[in-house]
Amino acid sequence: METRHSIRDPKANARPRPTARGIVLALCVAVLVLLFAAWRFDNPRVESLRTKFIDAILPSFEIGIEPGRLAWKFFGSIENFSRLVERNEELNLELTQMQEWREIAHNLERQNANLRRLLGVSAAAPHYSISASVIADSSSPFRQSFLISAGRENGIVDGWAVTDGLGLVGRISGVGNSTSRVIQITDPNSRIPVRLDSGNRAILLGDNSHSPILDMIERVDDIELNDRVLTSGDGKVFPAETFVGFVVKDAKNRFRVRPSANFRDLQFVRVIRVFPAEPIDGPGELIVESAQPLQPVNSEAAAISGN
């Protein structure tokens, strides 16, 4: 190091007092530590700033994302091309099967409608959905989330459920003006209250694998493989009766859920709007209160069954 050729050697006389470089470095470290501290201790505020920032810069990123998407599509189409005939046969086979299923579905629908009419049941409170496309994949190896092309302007609210038509994909977490972020059910931070066919309740826990874990199962003995798993709506913001998938068992004998949503090819999603049921917090006005000591209806139960 001492045998340098340059005369103005920046390191030679840098030892005693801090260099400009050292000061910049220290400043950077200090700012970063402060940012991390702010993120850790005032999370909601920093996260909302983050959402605003992403909302502002994402359109400019789409210039870059579009070629990337084309490139991926190109590689995908080469693969498809090479097995075109094979694929065609597969699809024809599937089509005939689907036609069969369609008949069954029509029949069931008719039957269902008849039975409903007989029972005089009114269907559950309507929840409409907002469609959006997946615009960016913000997953890293340890996080599973993506951004969709609908935000506050489209009426999206934090916490709503996101499906792809086949099954639950995740929930909204972070809403910007024109984009919002969806945390997938496979993310390690995802916790979804679910209900099984057997009436069992459990929590669905993401762990970065394709099939989330069923945790805190109410009655483990009652659980059966291939049980259907639906959201239970216990979280109040989350709609009940959204289909998630089927129960499977992994190599370690833990119960997991194989999601029926098609994560592999996720382009469009539907955000399910939830209208909170009107809480019933007292007896109706027709009833004279002193005449009948009526227990007020539990508003929580009403909210769950109303969804």
Binding site: F61, G64, G68, R69, I135, A136, D137, S209, H210, F263
Partner: peptide, 21 residues
């Protein structure tokens, strides 16, 4: 670097991969 980031952000299916990139 921005192009690399854009490529990472490109949505190509959301299945968690067993082999992280």
């Amino acid at each position: 670097t921005l192009a690399l980031l854009a490529f990472a952000l490109t949505p190509t299916g959301q299945a968690p991969s067993r082999y992280p990139p």
